[in-house]
Design a protein around this nucleic acid. Structure first.
Lengths: 228, 228
DNA sequence: TTGTATCTGTAAGAAACCTTACAGTTTGAT
DNA sequence: ATCAAACTGTAAGGTTTCTTACAGATACAA
């Protein structure tokens, strides 16, 4: 079986498809390798494709006219994105940028819809996927309105440790992402300077450790307390 | 044809269903009349049902431990809600409150899923609906991060005038909702006092008029300018 | 109609956060 | 190995917004 299919089976949306369907999907797909900083789509691009991220990482964000940025999510291998093209082919309202060299599969929106019409259980999985994203962003909005910057930061660190964490040799949980402080700020809707301030406060208080641009969560319990 | 079916055909998700399907749906449904201030569901309730709002209005919001509130959306007749039960039957994370006496149809989540599996084009419409909500909330989050209170308020007024507006006898567009200033504040993630301040500033500047708890948009063009 | 609950307008003071500024550090490319 | 670009730490000052406070207006129920 070609490597491409192996990857696809990992993506849970496509699990439980039979061989015939897989071949059909395979014929619809185009692959692409993109390097760090490459743009997959930008605001105002027509929404023509759905993407499967097979390797690397992609950041979905919004940018204001003045250049301020808010990160909606950082995607891991196995995730689908650009799925809002399923609404209509209107202009994109977000920007998708590669942050770790990526390998993508690209399916035309109309083809994807046809596939959904044929495989109702896949359609339901797509619905659930979008629903999960809706719920996630509702929670993010809740954070923005109800919590101050240190609380948002504490909760972000806990979430990243949960989603991207590895046990650190020195104890604690290493967040296995190289993100700049600017990127942390974008994830919590704040600025680089304010974020730096609180990261160092957390470090002074022994809640985290900062080593070589990586963060180790040392005291998740106290972090939770800061997340009010 | 019973009144109930007449309503259902108005709801675009159910359009294009054949008679047999309609009857099937009809058998699954329970109706309910609820008065203003009734709670349809609360945080931590299991997500067992999907609701169709046939008459009245329902507010979907989140409330923090300290009682602060953020309104996610205000629903009009013809709209579906509680659709996140399609993800799983886990606890609700939002509160759905009747704000104008409502008439609802209630469908069990599992029945709804079965219906989706049988009618792929209906499934696609549900997917699009959730997708539209996802996009709407992404834009709301963008507002929260990029814009200050007066800009958010100006944009809210324009949106409400667009969605719920009627030509006012005195000229301008009447926003046909009786919302308190507290409710306006919840819609833009601010406080009652700050909102009151800017509403009155807009009034002084001739952008809007406040009559009997209703708002008339007089100068949409200038309001747009305030929305940055 | 009367009283009570809710809503509205306004302002002073406080808090959170952003902006600006700058120097030092690290990273990555040549 | 060297240099430029990007990243980090920190602080002073200013802005926005929230909090608190209170009085008057309006709506609703008995």
């Amino acid at each position: 079986m070609p490597d491409r299919l192996w990857y696809l089976k990992q993506i849970n949306i496509f699990s439980q498809m039979d061989e015939a369907m897989f071949r059909q999907l395979n014929d619809m797909m185009v692959e692409k390798t993109l390097q760090k900083k490459a743009i997959v789509y930008m605001p105002d691009d027509p929404s023509e494709y759905v993407y499967c991220l097979k390797r690397g990482r992609v950041k979905i964000s919004k940018i204001s006219e003045e250049g301020k940025e808010i990160t909606i999510t950082i995607l891991e291998p196995g995730e689908i994105f650009g799925e809002l093209s399923l609404i209509d082919s209107g202009p994109r309202e977000t920007i998708a940028e590669v942050i770790d060299d990526a390998y993508l599969c690209i399916v035309r929106r109309t083809d994807f819809e046809r596939l959904m019409a044929q495989a109702p259980d896949m359609a339901l999985r797509v619905t659930k996927l979008i629903g999960l994203r809706l719920r996630a962003i509702e929670n993010k909005m809740e954070d923005l309105v109800f919590r101050d910057v240190p609380a948002r930061l504490a909760r972000l660190l806990l979430r990243l440790a949960h989603d991207h964490g590895k046990p650190a040799p020195s104890g604690g949980t290493l967040i296995d992402l190289k993100l700049s402080q600017h990127e942390f700020a974008c994830l919590i809707g704040s600025t680089r300077e304010t974020t730096s301030l609180f990261l160092n406060e957390f470090k002074r208080d022994g809640l985290i450790d900062l080593v070589h641009r990586r963060i180790v969560v040392l005291d998740p319990h106290s972090l939770e307390a800061r997340g009010v």
